[in-house]
Amino acid sequence: MAIKNKQLVVMHYELKVNGAQIETNFDGSPIEFSYGTGEIIPGLEEAIQDMNEGETKEVKIPAEKAYGKHDPSLTETLPISDFEGIDLEIGLVLEADDDNGDLIKATVTEVTKDEVTVDYNHPFADCDLDFKVFIKRIV
């Protein structure tokens, strides 16, 4: 029986970007999510909609249905004095709470003697994602 909205899906997956494995849970615990509620990226949810318990599938999720295109407006250059006590380097992911108390992440993309440029785009923005999924259980 294929997955339906609001059903609990128990799934193993492997994620590759540009042929490199980024993460997998095939050797560990599966993820659990309520299908159709936006808990996973839209393209993956769409790709598994007709799958059944016990089924394995490989799918390519285009960037537009994953983490979107890179948005240049989501970068910001700040004075280096805002980062006092932090060992800054390109690629460092910084975490902070926004005004609502929600966690935000930014990646350092440039460091000069006076300024730091950070990028708030998801690290996989502009990336097509290759998934191998196994539907372990549908409840």
Results as ranks from 00 to 15, higher is better:
E84M: 08
V111C: 04
A63F: 06
K65N: 15
A63V: 07
V59A: 02
V139Y: 13
Y35F: 15
G28Y: 09
V118S: 01
T37D: 14
P79L: 11
V17K: 02
L15W: 07
K65A: 13
G28F: 08
L94D: 01
D126M: 14
P30K: 08
I41V: 09
N52Y: 11
F124R: 07
A125T: 03
F131V: 11
I22M: 09
K113Y: 06
V139E: 15
H12T: 10
L74K: 01
V9T: 01
I40W: 02
Y67W: 13
D102N: 14
E55D: 14
I104W: 05
P42D: 00
Y35Q: 07
M51S: 13
G101P: 09
K136W: 14
E110P: 05
P42L: 09
F83G: 00
I61E: 00
S73P: 06
M51R: 08
M11G: 00
K105M: 14
E110N: 10
I3M: 05
A47P: 09
L44G: 01
G28P: 04
I138C: 10
V17P: 00
C127A: 13
E14Q: 12
L129D: 03
L8W: 03
G43N: 03
G43W: 14
E89D: 10
F26T: 05
V139W: 10
I86A: 01
I138E: 00
S34M: 12
R137E: 15
P62M: 07
E46A: 13
T37C: 08
I80H: 01
E53C: 09
V133C: 02
T112D: 02
L44I: 01
L74Q: 09
P72A: 08
I104N: 02
E95W: 04
K4Y: 06
Y67E: 08
Y13H: 05
I104E: 05
K69F: 10
L44S: 00
E23K: 14
E45K: 03
S34G: 06
Y67V: 11
K16N: 06
G38S: 04
T37E: 15
A63G: 04
V116C: 07
D99W: 08
E32T: 11
E110V: 05
P123R: 02
P42Y: 07
V139P: 13
